[in-house]
Amino acid sequence: MTDRILALSGVRLTLAGNAGPVEVLRGIDLSVMRGESMGLIGPSGSGKSSLLMLMGGLERATAGQVLALGQDLGAMSEDALARFRRANMGIVFQSFHLIPTLTALENVALPLELAGAPDAMARAAQELDAMGLGARGGHYPSQLSGGEQQRVALARAFVARPAILLADEPTGNLDGATGAAIMDQLFALRDRHGATLVLVTHAPELAARCDRVVRLADGLIAS
């Protein structure tokens, strides 16, 4: 827990909106240590998801620098970013974003297959088993419940054992009980694999489960 796995300095993000440019992030300085779990909270529109996108290299900062594992994400090409994510990051979305034409097993195997792993399917099957979905591997996303879909998404995020896990309101589309179960699984996995976790959430009690909580307001770190 001594080295910085994510380091953001002077990060600004301006997006084009229908009524003109919108300043989403207005100067963020933030570090995340290896193995740390950090909760990002704040009201809607405060820039939480945008900050997460910047950390994942899914969005480019208008100004400032984003370093992940010591590498400047802003200096990388789209393909280099893709390769970097493949090797180091797992991402969980609020809307699951499973590929509808792939089965649960195939969705989980996808990151391994993209990395050229020869045993992708076997490892994906193990991961699904561990999530309690071993029997649902052949089902398509449309045949799964919301909670099951998010568990598949969790399995997909962890299957390649990433160093960094980014989660964007992973329980936002789930009912309370299912959401709680998913969060338990998320933290259990994170503890088991020792990944660094950045969790965006509206819920202070979920954020409180993290080592550190950062509050965003109006594009700035409030506390």
């Binding site: 893709a82 991402i91 974003h97 509808p100 996808l110 993209l114």
Partner: peptide, 16 residues
């Protein structure tokens, strides 16, 4: 679009 974006987020390169 969503599948393509997901593939990219998961690390698929343009040529793939």
């Amino acid at each position: 679009r969503e599948s393509i974006a997901t593939l990219k987020a998961l690390g698929a390169e343009s040529r793939l």
